[in-house]
Nucleic acid binder design. Structure first.
Length: 453
RNA sequence: GCGGUCAUCGUCUAGCGGCUAAGACAUCGGUUUGUGGUACCGAGAAUCUGGGUCCGAUUCCCAGUGACCGCCCCA
């Protein structure tokens, strides 16, 4: 590079008004959302319950990367599906790898299962995972380009008792979130063999009724005939109502599997609805599929979660033939539903003590005192930046603490602290070295949580 | 990816060609110097972005952006 050019560059940099900078857009990207502090108690509740039930049902946590090779998803979810066809965040890296942001969690879990030889672990291998997934579609309520899923997968067990247990877990999760009215819908879409036969039968039927279907459904006969079954158009659902149903055309193995599953569910007294039109959007499902619907008014029912068996997926991906089943819930939708039905969010522990300081000397000492309180498990609030005792008491009052510790100039010199009972207003002066024990005694023991010492 | 509705302080709303853009809630400060509530007083805080019409645009028109709704699909 010649020196003239360099000189020019330097001159340019010296004149900032010449540099055209993109304006800062203070806005989340389309379909992306901040999870604000005000909403965190709901999220925390979902996290805590999910983690507890995962543990109780024997699931181990697995975290996989958000970014994977793009074809991991296209192969497993299905090339023809909408998720892969038009909703994936796919891009080339600097190293020219074709990668994608994960649109769901199961594919990555399967990859990890095969990569790390988890087939050698005792079966079933139960995997719990949670995190954000990405789909580039048009946002609306309950649908985001980034959303969080809580996901459960179990590998290596084909007995329908596992299907029943997984469905029970899904049901129990939603119940425990406080959503009592959600509806469990179940169907069996058969295995590769009987589904193929059934598809032929269905296509024949639909072709014969082609004139009575909407435009979209006529197209779907070719692309995805199963989807015609849950079209919302009146005329289509009339055709669908008389269409052959997959449950009536299962092979013997699939029929027995489904029958046994239903027996287990009945034994559990788990309420469910068999929806012969329930079809899921991912190609890898076999046999059992299920979905949990919110109880919102008709037409506004959103799926809170869903899943099913995917007995051939591991083999398709190159692992040894391994039956598997799993499901995911959408956290944003769960949170929205919890709010709608007024389910209780997580209630974080509130400080019972407020530390007020007055004067420069006391202000200096207050930081250390606060730290000592914290170390002793006494959850303490403060507002050190405020000057007047009045304004600090105002904050203490608003926080509804039981006691305010007042450290002023005089107390600091005497080595004492005032303990003020906020309910009665009564005050006592105690020596600083007895303060911790006294406060511990005054507040209830269950509010003292020591993490370390 | 297609169609529709909408867009004012942090939040909820008012104004609808002529502003210094109004109010409530919230926030912060104050009502005498070391004590909470209420009340009262005060402060900060907004017309999404870019064009166009007009003497003049927050208001009307167009585009962009975003939110929401319907489809498609999905959690």
């Amino acid at each position: 590079m010649d020196s003239k050019k360099n000189a020019k560059k330097i001159i340019k940099k010296a004149k900032p008004e010449k540099i055209k900078e993109e304006p800062l857009v203070l806005q989340t990207l389309r379909g992306m959302k901040d999870i604000l502090p005000i909403d965190q108690p709901y999220w925390e509740q979902v996290r805590r319950i999910s983690e507890r039930l995962a543990r109780d049902y024997g699931f181990s946590r697995l975290d996989t990367p958000i970014v994977e090779f793009a074809n991991l998803f296209s192969r497993s979810i299905g090339e023809g599906t909408d998720i892969v066809e038009k909703e994936m965040y796919t891009f080339l890296t600097r190293g020219a790898d074709k990668v994608a942001l994960r649109p769901e969690l199961t594919a990555g879990n399967c990859r990890s299962y095969i990569q790390h030889g988890m087939n050698l672990l005792p079966k079933p291998v139960k995997i719990f995972s949670t995190g954000p997934v990405y789909r580039y579609d048009r946002p609306q309520e309950g649908r985001y380009r980034e959303h969080y899923q809580v996901n459960f997968d179990a590998f290596g067990e084909q007995d329908p008792i596992l299907d029943a247990q997984i469905i029970q877990l899904a049901h129990r999760l939603v119940q425990t979130f406080g959503i009592k009215t959600a509806q469990m819908q179940i169907n069996s879409i058969g295995c590769q063999i009987c589904r193929k036969d059934y598809k032929e039968l269905l296509v024949n039927y639909l072709d014969s009724k082609k004139t009575k279907l909407c435009q979209d459904c006529r197209r779907r006969i070719e692309t995805n005939p199963l989807r015609v079954l849950d079209c919302k158009e009146d005329k289509c659902s009339q055709v669908a109502a008389l269409a052959p149903q997959s449950v009536d055309h299962l092979c013997e193995d699939c029929r027995n599997h489904f029958k046994t599953l239903l027996e287990y569910l009945d034994e559990l007294d788990l309420p469910y609805i068999i929806n012969p039109h329930l079809v899921r959007g991912l190609d890898y499902y076999t046999k059992t599929v299920f979905e949990i619907l919110s109880s919102a008014e008709e037409g506004k029912k959103l799926s809170l979660g869903g899943g099913g068996r995917y007995d051939k997926l591991i083999k398709i991906m190159g692992g040894e033939d391994t039956p598997a089943i799993g499901f995911a819930i959408g956290v944003e939708r769960i949170v929205a539903e919890m709010k709608r039905v007024q389910a209780k969010p997580y209630k974080p522990p509130r400080p019972k003590v407020f530390l007020a300081q007055l004067g420069n000397l006391a202000k200096k000492k207050s930081l250390k005192l606060f730290s000592e309180l914290e170390r002793n498990g006494i959850l303490t609030a403060e507002s050190f930046g405020r000057g007047s005792l009045k304004s600090q008491l105002k904050v203490a009052n608003r926080l509804k603490v039981e006691f305010t510790l007042i450290l002023g100039q005089k107390e600091t010199l005497d080595g004492t602290v005032i303990v003020k009972n906020m309910a009665t207003g009564a005050q006592e002066t105690v020596s600083a070295d007895k303060l911790i024990d006294l406060v511990k005694k005054k507040i209830k023991a269950d509010n003292v949580v020591v993490y370390h010492n």
